[in-house]
Every structure is written in C-alpha cells, then in structure tokens.
C-alpha cells in the first residue's frame, strides 16, 4: 500500500469538506473493496476519509412501504435485521450471501453500490427493486445510477447517505457463486411490485455490469412462475466469458437463477 493520510470525520459535511482538501481523496466505508485494491497498489489515494464511524450514516428503518438502509450499514446488520427479513426477505437473503461472515461484518451497502463491481450482489437488488439512492446532494433513481463497469452517476466527492427500497409484493434472489471469489458468477433478483409491475436484474453476467432482463420481465409479467421461463432463451451476446463461466453458460444461469428466484419468491 502506498502512503496515505487517514481521516475520521464525524459528520457528512465534514467528510465532504475533507474530500475537497485532499489532492486525491477517497471515501472509505467498510474498506473491503478499497483496502484490498490499495494493498495491490492499484489505488493510491492521498487521503482516506472514513465514513464508517459517522453515526448518521449507520442504521436502517422500515416503514409500511419502504426499507431505508443508511449507507454505512454492514451486510451483516442487514442480513440479521428482523424488520428487513419481514419486509423484503429477499434483500436480507442477498445480504447474507455476500462474501463470508467477516466480509459481511465490515462491508457496507453504500460501498458496494458506489463501487458497482459487475459481480456484486447489491446492485441487482437496487436495480430490480427500483430503489432510490440518496446522496448529500440529491436523489438518484436506480435506473439512472449504474453506468457500466465500476462506474455510477455519483459526482466526484458526492456521498451516498442512504438507499430506499420500495417494499414489493414479491421478491426473490438466487445467486450462483463464483467458485473462487464467491462474488456472483451470476445472480438474479426478481421483483413483483405492489402495482403488479415486474422488474428483473442480473449481476455477474454482463460485460456492462448489472442489467435488467427484459425478456424475463415480459414472461413473468404474463405468468409469475418458474415454468413461464422455460421457453425464454437468453442470448449470450455481451455477456462475460472467462475460465469459470463462458458466455453461453452465464446466459443459461440467468434463466435458471431467475427461475429459482421466482420459486423462492413464492
């Protein structure tokens, strides 16, 4: 790791102010993406600004139609939350599938979506549930937030403060883990909203990161059942291909994971 200066602000405003002062500052939340990258010397922030101890950024709230998770809430705390388990069980399940227990104790929802790794789990939930990302500047709809590999709509220095998930009628997540990294080789999140709309997002599969799958959405809208997808074929164009999963295999996984997610959603 290159030399850096660590800061621990106690408010969002202080964090944002520190950011503008650093020549090449970076926010740090759980550090479970940023620190490995810094250890590999692939990132060299002049300043590291820790959001993980800002009280306003930790915790979650569940209302009648929304689950709101503050940015620095850990995967563990989401997975273990009774209210989340009751409101959107698929979301708690997804959080419980991220990495391993030690990763879940540190990694945060904000860090995950700000990073937008093409194989990360949370982006699938955020996109499929049509969540709203709130920052210290504005609110961004999920459909506008993810901009391809490792890039998002966030402006330089903008801080995610919370993610608000509308509670759906039904939702399910099914993940086929990458055998080595345990990220998603392919993960599919299926949602039936309270208004009857269907939204489906896949992660781990596309060369452009998380994406919605129109063919599956259409089929499920017509008939919300695993069997409805039997006749759907997913083209492998634009899908990732590597030693762990060729593009045609990932195309198959999108369909199979979607079927299993629907089955889990009930």
């Amino acid at each position: 790791m290159y030399a850096t200066t660590y800061h621990r602000p106690s408010s969002v405003d202080e964090a944002a102010a520190l950011f503008t002062k650093g020549s090449e500052a970076k926010y740090l939340a759980g550090g479970h993406t940023l620190i490995p990258v810094m250890k590999q010397r692939l990132a060299s922030p002049s300043d590291v600004i820790d959001l993980g101890k800002i009280k306003d950024l930790i915790g979650l709230e569940v209302s009648a139609d929304t689950v709101t998770i503050k940015t620095a809430t850990t995967h563990h705390d989401v997975a273990a939350s009774g209210p989340v388990q009751r409101a959107i069980p698929a979301l708690a399940h997804l959080a419980s599938m991220i990495g391993d227990p030690a990763v879940r104790y540190r990694g945060t929802i904000g860090g995950s979506i700000a990073n937008n790794d093409p194989a990360a789990d949370y982006p699938a939930a955020v996109l499929a549930l049509g969540a709203t990302i709130r920052t210290n500047k504005r609110s961004i709809a999920a459909d506008d937030f993810f901009k391809g590999l490792f890039s998002t709509a966030l402006a330089d220095g903008e801080i995610i403060t919370q993610v608000a998930f509308p509670i759906p009628a039904k939702a399910g997540y099914s993940k086929f883990p990458h055998p080595a990294s345990r990220f998603a080789l392919t993960g599919v999140f299926v949602v039936k909203t309270k208004s009857g709309d269907v939204r489906v997002a896949a992660t781990g599969a596309s060369q452009n990161g998380v994406m919605r799958i129109a063919a599956i959405e259409a089929a499920l809208k017509a008939n919300w059942s695993p069997g409805a997808l039997d006749s759907v074929t997913i083209p492998d164009k634009g899908l990732m291909s590597d030693i762990h999963g060729s593009s045609d295999y990932r195309a198959n996984l999108i369909k199979v994971m979607a079927q299993r997610a629907v089955a889990a959603a009930g």
Partner: peptide, 15 residues
C-alpha cells in the same frame, strides 16, 4: 466482539 479480517482494516479504523 466481531470476527473480522485484520489484514483488511486500517489501524485508524480500529482506533
């Protein structure tokens, strides 16, 4: 009280 990977925690975070 939580089991974490100490190779992925900066000393400042553990302060």
């Amino acid at each position: 009280g939580r089991a974490v990977k100490s190779c992925t925690v900066l000393v400042g975070q553990a302060d």
